[in-house]
Design a protein around this nucleic acid. Sequence first.
DNA 1: TGAAATGTTGGGGCG
DNA 2: ACGCCCCAACATTTC
Length: 542
Amino acid sequence: MVALGSGVRSPATAAGGGSPVLLWFRRDLRLADNPALQSALRAGRPVLPVFVCPSPEAEWAPGAGARWWLRRSLAALDADLQARGSRLLGLDGPADSALIKLAASTQATGIVWGDVREPSAVAEADLVREAFRAAGLAVEEVDGDLLFPLERVHTLAGGPFRVFTPFWRACRALPGPALPEGPPPVVIPGPEVWPAGVRIGAWSAGGLGTDSGDRMAVYWEPGEKGAQARLAAFLDDGLGIYAVERERPDRDGTSRLSPHLSVGEISVRRVWHEVGVRMKSWSPARKGTVLPSSTPPPPIASPDASAPAVASMRDSAHVFLTELGWREFARHLLVHFPHTVTRPLRPEFAAFPWEDDPEALDAWRRGLTGYPFVDAGMRQLRATGWMHNRVRMVIASFLVKDLLLPWQAGSRVLWEGLVDADMAGNTLGWQWAAGCGADAAPYFRVFNPVLQGRKFDPDGIYVRRWVPELGGLSTRHIHEPWRAPAEELRMAGVIVGESYPRPLVDHGVARDRALAAFRGLKAAAAPEAPTPARPEPTRRPT
DNA sequence: TGAAATGTTGGGGCG
DNA sequence: ACGCCCCAACATTTC
């Protein structure tokens, strides 16, 4: 362990007298609208910002994608703190012993952090709380990054929701989230003497490791500044067309805010408010727009050309806010059903006869299934640490229904690769795809990877970008190269089975197999239940 | 936030 | 003119 207390003196302007308070950054790597930071400042004491590196042995330690992001986000946070006379300290976990040691060596009076409501993070915080209380130090846990207070969202019977629509309706009936706080503080007072040897920048031994290069850097700008820039760009260029464009992986139609949100570089309530402001300010302004009389009416479009734009903005903002609702719903579920990280919410699925086929799993993971749309998604993940959401649904359906491989295996692969890896979202998404979770896709809903490709990548642009060996195929055959005429394959330099794999399974056959397996599960769950005389009472409302 | 099978309809070719 | 068939297009049902 490093010796503390022998560091350099800090600039007088940022130094404060007295014992410091620890500010434990967790999933709120920002200075603006950060309740934990605001609370630490209110104490009127020097603030010691600290991040605890997750232990690489932890069961859900961040994967390679998340580590790539975290390293850069932490460096950005450190730089932002330095600009305010502060700095970010880095410790290796476990959090309780590391933080209590830092508190002892700096004579800290207490600690504050923002709540993170994932099972492992709750357990971690419990240990920290115990350790600090035992040492007679102050502990404050402030609200985490949610739009609505979870404890106030429940069914009439008092239980948790399992279906999104009523959940979201109940949320919207509550007062919305408070307006974000004002601009970040200009100065964050530090101690007279900073502990030495625990600068975040010098910290590479822990679970974050190192990465080979900046291959992914062209796609992303981690950090608070990057998050705000991304939001601004999305509000200006993306939100108005979001409702239609978001389904197109071949275009840049999503917000791409997820990795920024996953580590809290921007608060979700700020995103909420800024989208809301756009939604309200846009429509009256456009409604009142009067075209100069000399302007000829558009040849075919409706007389008021701005009307579609207004509707589009309103629809789009609504659709986008509903996506934030799904984020909220995922957290709601994880709080009430923490076991669903590894076990199905619907208990009968525990007996599902998943296949055990490491080679098929590996082919899927590497983007070599022989289905171009699936492979494009998996390769986009490997190259950029991110995958378009529509494609996530398709690759997930392919794993659990076409390959009959367990959703937990898929969950692990995406957890390892995604820069926006999020425990609640990953869990909800995979259980949704497998049909074993809340509000899940029914077992008979099987995505056809060819049809999904044709529908959402109609020109084959997405496939050609991420599966370049198919680039010479016509749009007609780009999503099913095994059906291309021999002459076209030859001209394109494609040899199915050599330069690009033959389909791992025949989708038609695989679909029948999946339906049979899921039917069998249903039969096993209710061995001798004939059709009930009256409709089941617990069916979801529509 | 499906897809496939099955059913229905209506136009048009044709004897 | 008429019935018949084919089939695309659309709707409904089933998985």
